[in-house]
């Protein structure tokens, strides 16, 4: 932590693995962090208190926010087929065994009969309900590991895992590199995307000769102004001695 030691680190700037603190972050006093409290909020009711071991049964809580409600509507919770909407409950239309919709497209307010001349099998609902046929796995078939697994009855194209009931995960757990201090739930885009956008806009600028000339002129004017501010004062010139301003022009 002592300052004089710092000169020894100049030659190993590149090694992140050593816990050296960069010079600019060295603080001999606190950085005033204690003056910036975080206004914590209590957990929402029901889950604010940690449950003890006794009540181990998970409680089915009602959906908490709007996306939950939406997912509850969209995702089938129970395998039983939902009853068809009342507008379509016509006893004469037999349901399709695949998509559970009546075979003859009935007239409904959302689908006027004139607009659905397509046969039932080509309807979106039917197509989505069809069992998927997956492309074969991309695993290299010559691998020794694969031949062992398939000799014990594992099918690489069946999209199954290992285990007694082949219930294991089908793909390895993915690693995601984290090289910043962003907290949980902080969107990735905030700092990085902003940077990229900024840079992108600069790149978009197309300059023709006139604009460049204008820029150069402006640049020159700015430099003059700085010059004047620095050396315009006679005292500075006096202090620096004669010819001090010469190098700049």
């Amino acid at each position: 932590m002592a300052a004089p030691k710092e000169n020894t680190r100049s030659n190993n700037d590149h090694d992140e693995d050593y816990d050296d603190i960069p010079l600019q972050h060295q603080r001999y006093f606190g950085a005033g962090l204690h003056k910036r409290p975080i206004s914590f909020v209590s957990a929402s009711t029901g889950s604010s208190q940690l449950q003890s071991v006794n009540n181990t049964t998970p409680k089915l809580s009602p959906p908490q926010d709007i996306s939950d409600i939406y997912l509850n509507l969209v995702l089938p919770k129970t395998p039983q087929p939902s009853p068809p909407p009342p507008s379509e409950s016509q006893p004469d239309a037999p349901p399709c065994p695949i998509c559970n919709l009546p075979l003859q497209a009935p007239s409904s307010p959302t689908h006027p009969p004139s607009q659905c001349p397509t046969p039932h099998t080509q309807s979106l609902a039917h197509q989505l309900s069809l069992p998927h046929s997956h492309p074969p796995s991309s695993l290299d078939r010559t691998r020794m590991g694969l031949s062992y697994l398939s000799s014990h009855g594992w099918d690489p194209d069946a999209r199954r895992g290992l285990g007694a009931a082949e219930q294991g995960i089908a793909f390895p757990v993915k690693a995601r590199l984290k090289d910043d201090n962003r907290g949980v739930g902080m969107p990735v885009s905030v700092s990085k995307k902003g940077d990229e956008k900024g840079r992108g806009r600069e790149k978009e600028k197309l300059l023709d000769a006139g604009k460049v000339r204008k820029l150069v002129k402006e640049e020159g004017r700015r430099r003059e102004r700085v010059w004047e501010e620095l050396f315009g004062d006679g005292r500075v010139e006096k202090y620096l001695g004669k010819g001090a301003g010469g190098g700049g022009s």
């Binding site: 694969l146 690489p156 895992g161 290992l162 285990g163 294991g168 995960i169 089908a170 390895p172 757990v173």
Partner: peptide
Amino acid sequence: LVHFDLMDPPAPETMM
């Protein structure tokens, strides 16, 4: 090793 009854069997690729 395919049907070894692990609680959480590993991914086939890892095993391979």
